[in-house]
Design a protein around this nucleic acid. Structure first.
Lengths: 220, 220
DNA sequence: CACGTAGGTGAACAGTGTTCACTGAACTAC
DNA sequence: GTAGTTCAGTGAACACTGTTCACCTACGTG
């Protein structure tokens, strides 16, 4: 009666949402294939009809997390490129990270098993990166060193920005990701533990840099 | 004949170095209590005479990693506080992270089991942080927002620096840690993958900020 | 209608962390 | 010097884990 492909898609979806729930609640290390199967009302070996292994299931969750984050960021910045686009993207990033802390660490924390094959995830990751890269104002007040310029020339072309913009984006997103990793890892306990103020401080400084911080651009 | 406490200390050391080797080679997720016991020539249950659980063993490795990192940083910057102290510390940080990538991720990556009790690790972490915090020049060219200032007032006193210095240190170390986490996680593949040039660029920018970017108001 | 495909089953294997009664040698006290 | 205690290490067991395999059987197609 019920179409087979439809039934397959349904249990696959049940497996995925069970896995997603487990990760969201307790983190990737607590994700058990058997537990997922249990919650989906299915025997453990049945999972292998849908995913090659536990790690493949986890990889799918990583891809989904990337997509979720990318959509959130894109929705936050909208289509227009305004002066506060970077700030909006950064705020949306932290909000998403705090709301989905285990997924954030799944993406930006320790790579999961031995090595995670970056091949499939590169495209998903690029979509997230693109939001930030495209929001860097192209006033390259900080000139790149020659080596980095050469290294980024090709990739920058792909993103449709200048090497200086790409370099700036990489440096600044490093700060954003680092602050979130440290916050989620509890490394600010005792200093800036609710990291809201530190986050605002960082955003202000970044905004100031990007809008051409120097009143006196003496140094050539 | 052989003193019992001495024998105990020896096997404990063997367990620890076996565990350290395992983590160094394959990462924390691959650390197996039974494997450690095997390499130490001991039955699995014997490990429980030395460590409360697998997570306790891992916690000890985290503490050791903190100590190793702190000693490396302290050796790199020396006792004097020179103008390039920050840069030296940062370079030493990256060198250590690349040389001990799994230990670095053990510290700054995804927290291991459910939640890692930060109580014991706080002191060890503070030693690492202190190296950077004490190397921020106290020319607070970027004034903090009032909320962050208030939040950091107490902790800054403990470190013997101004709130502005502490805030700056937290913001800049976030960038350093973030860049390393992204590099080790493979997030720069396709753009700045050998991240040496990006790292230098980041350090130059930080140095410029700290030396008071706007004017040559040299060291007082 | 007959047949092959394939999602789901259940048993098994090797591995894991952890517990527990136990042994026996090193220490302590008399 | 002998009796008693402490305790690092043992071995078996428990409950879990990921993964494989032969099997079943209902769907979809010829």
């Amino acid at each position: 009666m019920i179409a087979r492909s439809e039934a397959k898609a349904r249990t696959r979806q049940q497996l995925l949402s069970a896995a997603q729930e487990a990760v969201q609640k307790e983190g990737a290390s607590a994700l058990s294939l058997r537990g997922v199967a249990r919650r989906a009302g299915v025997v453990p070996s049945a999972v292998y009809r849908h995913f090659e292994s536990r790690d493949a299931l986890l990889t799918q969750l990583i891809l989904d997390a990337y997509t979720s984050l990318a959509e959130t960021l894109e929705a936050a910045v909208g289509t227009r490129i305004a002066g506060d686009s970077w700030r909006r993207a950064a705020q949306a990033l932290r909000a998403w990270a705090l709301r989905h802390r285990h997924e954030f660490l799944l993406i930006y924390g320790t790579p999961v098993p031995g090595y995670r094959a970056p091949v499939e995830t590169v495209a998903a990751a690029a979509r997230v990166a693109a939001v930030f890269i495209s929001r860097v104002p192209d006033t390259p007040q900080e000139h790149l060193n020659a080596s980095l310029h050469a290294q980024l020339a090709g990739p920058a072309r792909d993103f449709g920005v200048s090497p200086a913009q790409l370099g700036q984006a990489l440096a600044e997103t490093s700060q954003l990701v680092g602050a979130l990793v440290l916050e989620l890892g509890g490394h600010f306990v005792g200093t800036a533990d609710p990291a809201d103020h530190l986050w605002n401080q960082i955003l202000e400084a970044q905004q100031q840099r990007q809008s051409g911080a120097e009143a006196p651009s003496e140094i050539t």
